[in-house]
Simulated assay, not measured.
Amino acid sequence: MNFNYSEEQNLLKDSIAKFISNDYSYETRQKHVAMEKGFNEATWNTFAELGWLCVPFSEDDGGIGGGPVEIMIVMEEFGKGLVVEPFVPSVILSGAAIAAAGSEQQKADLLPAIIDGSQIFSLAFVEPQARFDLYDVKTTASETNGKFTLNGAKSMVIHGGSADTFLVVARTSGEQRDEQGISVFLVPADAKGVVVKSYRTLDGQRAAEVVLDNVEVQASALLGVKDQAYELLQTISDDACLALGAEAVGIMEKLYKETVEYTKERKQFGVPIAIFQALQHRMVDMFTLQQECRSLLLRAVLSHESGAKEYQKNVSALKYAVAVKGQKVAHEAVQIFGGMGMTDEMNVGMYLKRINMINTLFGNGDYHLRRFMAL
């Protein structure tokens, strides 16, 4: 099996890697985190100018027709740089949902704004009582006279504080935990009755709590078919897990490489600690764990690309491995770096926090282990 990238894929990888190396240092990243929106709008516009925001969209929708391999490339490099710009909520989640379920008019109106970076979209689907069950939806949308009225609350809306438009998951029929009866609506962030409370997450990024109090939207705000959004949510959730898995693999690679370099410089008893056999064994373990996760990532990507029925199972295997092995790699790095590895002044501690955050998004390790066994 040929795992080599094509010429175009290598160009994409090299362009992002070069940007991260030259223009996105850890110090720069920390400055972006401290900005009002939690990211740098100029950098986001640069992403758009370089064509990175159009990667997963078809040529008919204004993209380059990239698939899971291209997303893997982008997210691995973003992981190495701890990129905080809203690529996942706006492109991977919202953009994919609009491209898959939107009408021709909705796609024509909305996708160009995502691709050129002029608007930020965020998927509002998590509810406090639901844990990781996508079908557990208490937020309601009642239809009257050609309009929908939304009431409810959403948690952990990624980059919700900077979003121009929310894709709100609401129940239009059925009981709270029914898979049928779920719909998605396009809701402007400044609509009457929408209250957004933004906050910083563990890894320095941003999320928000969103309350909807009698928010009225037109029937044209419905995305896709009424009552039948669950399958769409499951698809984009799996694809988001794949993207986050790639990000985690990039983080793990960066962690073991930086740890190896550090041990060559750090001295004890007048010699570099890299010569200590116990540490050598631990760093070999870090490399091995990263390669195991990368193998599972490739398996999931290839099954996605070929449309194999094992895709969901492979995604859950990857997500579980990242939860267990990713944290192991990050903890080893922090221990070898010592106390300073826990501080925000060093990227090692922030890589650990980001790995922990990835573990909680779209189902943690325990959830995906149970899902894997069920599948």
Results as ranks from 00 to 15, higher is better:
Thr235Ile: 02
Asp61Gly: 04
Lys37Gln: 11
Gly160Thr: 05
Leu186Thr: 03
Gln180Val: 01
Val249Pro: 01
Pro272Cys: 12
Gly339Ser: 14
Phe166Met: 05
His304Met: 10
Asp136Glu: 12
Tyr230Asp: 07
Ala274Trp: 04
Val187His: 12
Lys154Asp: 06
Met283Ala: 03
Leu150Ile: 11
Ser15Arg: 13
Glu27Asp: 07
Ser6Thr: 15
Asn314Val: 00
Gly38Pro: 02
Gly62Pro: 01
Asp109Leu: 11
Arg171Tyr: 07
Ser162Ala: 15
Met340Tyr: 10
Val88Pro: 04
Ser90Asp: 15
Ala374Ser: 12
Gln268Asn: 13
Asp136Ser: 05
Ile158His: 06
His304Arg: 15
Phe269Cys: 02
Gly79Ala: 12
Leu167Gly: 02
Val84Ala: 14
Ser295Trp: 00
Asp366Ala: 14
Gly152Glu: 04
Thr360Ala: 11
Val69Glu: 14
Tyr320Met: 08
Glu345Arg: 11
Gly38Ile: 03
Ile358Glu: 10
Val194Gln: 04
Leu289Gly: 01
Asn364Tyr: 10
Ala229Gly: 09
Gln312Lys: 15
Ser303Ile: 00
Glu8Arg: 13
Lys254His: 09
Gln312Arg: 14
Ile275Ser: 10
Glu265Pro: 02
Ala308Ser: 15
Glu7Ile: 08
Glu332Tyr: 10
Leu111Ile: 12
Pro112Thr: 06
Ser295Phe: 05
Leu53Ser: 03
Leu296Lys: 15
Asn364Thr: 09
Cys241Pro: 00
Glu292Val: 05
Arg371Ser: 11
Ala130Leu: 04
Val91Asn: 10
Ile182His: 09
Ala333Leu: 09
Leu242Ala: 09
Tyr367Glu: 09
Leu167Asn: 00
Gly79His: 02
Asn151Tyr: 05
Phe3Met: 12
Leu232Cys: 07
Gln280Asp: 08
Gly51Arg: 10
Ser173Ala: 13
Ala278Tyr: 12
Ala163Asn: 03
Gln327Trp: 00
Glu247Phe: 08
Ala221Phe: 03
Met340Asn: 12
Lys264Ser: 07
Gly152Asp: 06
Ala246Ile: 02
Leu352Gly: 07
Asp136Val: 02
Leu296Gly: 02
Val260Ile: 05
Arg177Leu: 01
Gly349Met: 10
Gln312Val: 08
Ser142Ala: 12
Asn359Arg: 08
Gly204His: 11
Gly38Thr: 08
Ser122Thr: 12
Leu298Arg: 15
Asp60Arg: 08
Phe125Gln: 12
Ala42Leu: 13
Asn364Arg: 10
Met283His: 06
Asn45Lys: 15
Val348His: 01
Thr360Val: 02
Asp178Ile: 03
Glu41Met: 05
Met346Gly: 03
Leu255Arg: 05
Gly326Phe: 08
Val157Asp: 07
Met286Thr: 07
Tyr135Glu: 14
Ala163Arg: 05
Phe19Cys: 04
Leu202Ile: 07
Leu242Tyr: 02
Arg282Gly: 00
Phe276Leu: 13
Leu111Cys: 01
Val284Leu: 15
Lys13Phe: 03
Ser21Lys: 14
Gly66Leu: 00
Ile251Lys: 09
Ala130Tyr: 02
Ile236Asn: 00
Ala101His: 09
Ile275Pro: 01
Asp239Ser: 06
Gln280Leu: 13
Glu179Ser: 08
Gln335Val: 11
Val157Phe: 01
